[in-house]
């Protein structure tokens, strides 16, 4: 049952992700953004299968919800028709295709021949996974967590600088 669900969610994730970047039927950025939402939701399904319920909920609330609303805002504020008219460069398609096939082949053949997870000791999370996640963030990964706050400050300053009309 779990296996079947995994394959379903994994296939859906891949399908939606593909439709997000290379939709043959529509070149509308809003459609792409909606497929990105579906990709996030299928990934949330994968998190549920891993019993990471908190991450699954956050994935839907934050990514599929809040982040995507911002994406849609930006897309609608920009000139969408420009994107629809742009044509693909054949050379770029060929080169991109070759890289994707090459990378896919390498990944597929390595995954087939390796025993994934063999000899790995996994410790089960005690108590709720939310508590475990919070504990890891504020003890073991405290420093990276704090550095991310500097990163967010930099991003904020950058966005204001690059988008503000006239700064003095």
């Amino acid at each position: 049952m779990e296996n079947a669900l995994f394959y379903i969610f994994a296939a859906l994730t891949l399908l939606f992700a593909f439709l997000c970047v290379a939709n043959p039927f529509s070149r509308n950025p809003v459609t792409s953004a909606m497929f990105l939402v579906l990709t996030m939701i299928s990934m949330a399904g994968l998190f549920v299968l891993l019993q990471a319920f908190f991450l699954a909920a956050v994935q839907i609330l934050v990514y599929a919800g809040a982040v995507m609303v911002l994406f849609l805002f930006v897309i609608m504020l920009l000139d969408i028709k420009e994107e629809e008219r742009r044509r693909f460069n054949r050379f770029a398609i060929a080169l991109g295709g070759v890289s994707v096939i090459g990378l896919g082949f390498i990944l597929f053949s390595t995954i087939r021949e390796s025993k994934v997870g063999a000899g790995l000791k996994l410790t089960a999370v005690k108590g709720s996974d939310t508590a475990a996640l919070g504990k890891a963030l504020f003890t073991e990964y405290l420093l990276p967590f704090e550095i991310v706050s500097v990163l967010l400050l930099v991003a904020m300053v950058g966005v204001i600088l690059l988008s503000k009309k006239d700064l003095k």
């Binding site: 550095i147 500097v150 990163l151 950058g158 690059l162």
Partner: peptide, 23 residues
């Protein structure tokens, strides 16, 4: 690897802004 990733992102994201500074 977490420190590696966070440090690299802090450097790179700052440079995204700095390279396009002359708007």
């Amino acid at each position: 690897f977490v420190m590696l990733f966070v440090a690299i992102e802090l450097i790179t994201v700052t440079f995204y802004v700095l390279t396009s500074f002359q708007r």
